[in-house]
Design a protein around this nucleic acid. Sequence first.
RNA 1: GCCGUUAUAGCUCAGUAGGUAGAGCGUAUCCUUGGUAAGGAUAAGGUCACCGGUUCAAUCCCGGUUAACGGCUCCA
Length: 641
Amino acid sequence: MLSITLKDGSVRKVEEGTTILQLATTISAGLARVAIAGKVDDEVKDLTYPLEKDAQIEILTMDSEEGLEVMRHSAAHLLALAVQNLYPGTSFGIGPSITNGFYYDFDTEHAFTPEDLEKIENEMRRIAKENLCFERAELTRDEALDYFNNKNEKYKVELINDLPGEARISTYTLGGKFIDLCAGPHIPSTKLLKAFKLQSVAGAYWRGSEKNKMLQRIYGLAFAKASDLENYLYKLEEAKRRDHRKLGQELDLFSLHDEGPGFPFFHPKGMILRNALEDFWRKEHQKRGYVEIKTPIILNRALWEQSGHWDHYQENMYYTKIDDQDFSVKPMNCPGGMIMYKTKLRSYRDLPIRCGELGLVHRHELSGALHGLLRVRNFTQDDAHIFMLPSQIKEEIIGVIELVDYFYKIFGFKYKVELSTRPENSMGSDKDWQTATDALKDALDTKGIEYKINPGDGAFYGPKIDFHLQDCLDRTWQCGTIQLDFQMPEKFDLTYIGEDGEKHRPVMIHRVVYGSIERFIALLTEHYAGAFPTWLAPVQVRILPISDKHAEYAQKVEEILKEQDIRVEIDDRREKINYKIREVQTEKIPFALVVGDKEAEQGTVAVRRYGQQNTNTMSLNEFEELINNEIKSKKTGLEDN
RNA sequence: GCCGUUAUAGCUCAGUAGGUAGAGCGUAUCCUUGGUAAGGAUAAGGUCACCGGUUCAAUCCCGGUUAACGGCUCCA
């Protein structure tokens, strides 16, 4: 008899060889009906898995993330079977579960169209109803190779060849005919697949490498029940409403044109946002002992050779010639910062030097990668280079971490932290890289910050801490970053005079907080769904006179507010108040002030906030106080933020 | 860069099974002076993305280019 410990801590005795499903049945018939798989000592197994030894077991249902994963992965097999039925001769790649669904990669001459997806989805539904079971089989490597070689499944053969020697090779048969290489586990039967929908087709390189053939990837959504799927589809629709590309156009913030792909045009209202962000940035950096510089956008080839960009960053740079000499448009601000450092002799007493620069950089991104303001070809980095003594490293990194946290909290952003280590095409010694990486880790650990390690994702000159923010579709974008660099100071022979009167090498940090002003604006737009907090709102107040008679009073109110640097305008068109209210709402202006006879007589304003139905009549003084406090606090004024 | 889709008025979109186009919103002008999400009328606005081919005739069919969109790769 085996002792099985269940999730609630109770222990059951069962015969050896009892399957997980049988175990579930002994717990309750209801549980057995909705069981998807079982977790045996932290390993997820099929329900048909026979228990061999004492273990902790949890029966997984679609209520858990793990159960959903098993179901989504099983849905991928269903998709593969449907494609095999409809398009014989297709070769199969891989078909994992992903957040909210699954995908499967196919290799076929036929190019899948959106109409095909409908056909395939119908076939999936037809098969699902057949109540097919997933049957597991274990094969030797030779058997598996034979089988998939015969079927001309070259991708599966490649996968098998790459499996480690001791690996158990398993296949699953679905409905007796479709056999797929797979470690499992799967749901017991296709009838559990109900709430799914094919989403899109996209190209995807085999094994994610652009050196390999591009396969066709079909994405699908899958949920435990239909209402979950509907909710998710609704959420997607909502997300589209928040999309910064849509809102950017509607709110007249920026535009992109054929004449400059990836080079955004900022409109007057977008510039107000930018300037507000930059003003705030300057103020906070001055407080923290930063100075600000501006370095040129075009610098000569020799500089980029010295910095290593010519060797390590060439395909991302733009080039030009001036009087027959090679020049390059800067993709990063650091070399300019190096030159600045060297303009005079530095003492250890001068360090740390925190040198900020709102620098416009240009990078040649692949055309297919461009995406609104989130991925562009020129952007302004809120950069700074901190030159310091080796003994100051930790303190300075912590200072930047705290600064980033301070900024993101103001905007109400949640963020994720990643630590990226040495990439392949990089410069410097392993020892320096190790020291730098350890310093970053140490700072993170000291602050007690959770982080994920991204192996090989560092800059070519040093490891980095990245801060990632989420867009409205849950994709994450790198914004802040802290990069520790021993290479540039070396390459540029930076020195300071130490206490001993000798020359020493300073250490350098590259860091950004917003990352790119453009990207940050995109994320802010989505985060606030275009309803910017008052301190950022391009127009903060719009005065709505009831009729021409009130124009004079409206102008008086406007003047008073303008004197306090409040961004205010009057809608004096001969339209009805309803119409003006509607417009002020669609433009997401934080405050509408309705002024008519009553207000003009009493020296008041009828205040209607964005997103609220009610009006508060108050004296102009009271309103000034309200809005000034709100601007100062940087709050949104909306309850849900 | 690669795979797929798309491109018609300032915006959102319809349309012509090949005979040079239409709606709503917006804009302008006029009427309406109206109290919290759309008052009415009239008008202006398009080389149907660009280049080429087929055709008596191309916005529509074919080829190419460019850009956008969804992914892959890459990255702030």
